[in-house]
């Protein structure tokens, strides 16, 4: 009982206090040291801007969140649809690995934002253009982790599968390779979602998208309007949504696999 109380204190109160301390210091520095809203908006100004952007008649924050999540969904869906089969084929079939590896290694180091001109030329000023940039950022971690996961399937699992009736590649891949590679694959998807979320901001700032809504898009709009309090609002919203996506994903994955993955040697 006593230890539980102590842990609550340590795990909730201390983080709470440290965040509160940062906010107080921020407020003091902004008001009394910097004294310039443009250079550093104070905490209270940011809160006020958040309320205006979220609930005010001219605020577009809800639409921006919806559109950015839509861009993100397009990009992630495409990268899963392309990345997982590619990774599986490269991890399982030696010849496909040899054939595709140089292509992947040439394209992979190109920063995703460098694709923006072509994204706009190919897809126009559409949601798909923004989705494409996210796709470029997200697809490689998925390919590489799926590949590694399938490469590292323990030989004894494959042999056990063979003597137990998996005589074809297709059944070995679905019944042995896939479940065995799941921990690696989910780790890859998690990384790719982080990268995809980062690419989103860049893609929208540089004009991919329909040009009206989007968290990155309007973060930039507010910068041009010199409304730095709203810029901070958008930065914080981007961060919070990024964390929420990560937590939801981890929660989902844990529910699916934690039973067998826990304490695995």
């Amino acid at each position: 009982m006593r230890t539980t109380k102590k842990n609550t204190y340590r795990n909730i109160l201390i983080p709470f206090a440290s965040v509160a301390a940062v906010i107080i210091i921020w407020q003091i520095v902004a008001v009394y040291v910097v004294g310039n809203t443009f250079k550093l908006p104070s905490f209270t100004e940011v809160v006020a801007a958040f309320i205006t952007d979220m609930f005010g008649s001219r605020g577009t924050l809800p639409e921006d969140i919806a559109v950015s999540l839509y861009h993100f969904a397009i990009g992630m869906a495409a990268s899963l649809i392309v990345g997982i089969p590619t990774g599986i084929c490269m991890g399982w079939f030696r010849d496909i690995d040899i054939a595709l590896n140089p292509i992947v290694e040439i394209i992979r180091p190109i920063p995703p934002l460098a694709w923006i001109p072509f994204a706009i030329i190919w897809f126009g000023l559409t949601h798909a253009a923004a989705g494409f940039i996210i796709f470029i950022g997200a697809v490689f971690p998925i390919i590489i982790n799926t590949y590694t996961g399938f490469r590292n399937v323990p030989k004894v699992f494959i042999e056990a599968g063979k003597v137990l009736g998996c005589t074809k590649n297709s059944s070995l891949i679905t019944k042995i390779g896939f479940p065995s590679a799941i921990p690696e694959m989910t780790a890859g998807i998690r990384v790719s979602m982080g990268i995809g979320w980062m690419c989103l901001v860049g893609a929208e700032i540089f004009g991919a998208g329909t040009g009206k809504y989007g968290l990155g898009k309007n973060l930039w709009t507010y910068y041009n309007l010199h409304q730095m309090d709203s810029v901070v609002v958008y930065m914080l919203v981007l961060g919070v949504i990024g964390i929420i996506i990560d937590i939801l994903f981890r929660h989902y994955v844990n529910k699916q696999t934690v039973r067998w993955q826990n304490n695995m040697e």
Binding site: V156, A160, V163, P179, S180, T257
Partner: peptide, 20 residues
């Protein structure tokens, strides 16, 4: 020729599927 279900095998290493 090849593996088939008419021959069962128990391996030296632990070969149980951890996900099942």
């Amino acid at each position: 020729e090849g593996t088939d279900t008419d021959r069962g095998m128990v391996f030296q290493e632990y070969s149980l599927f951890p996900w099942k």
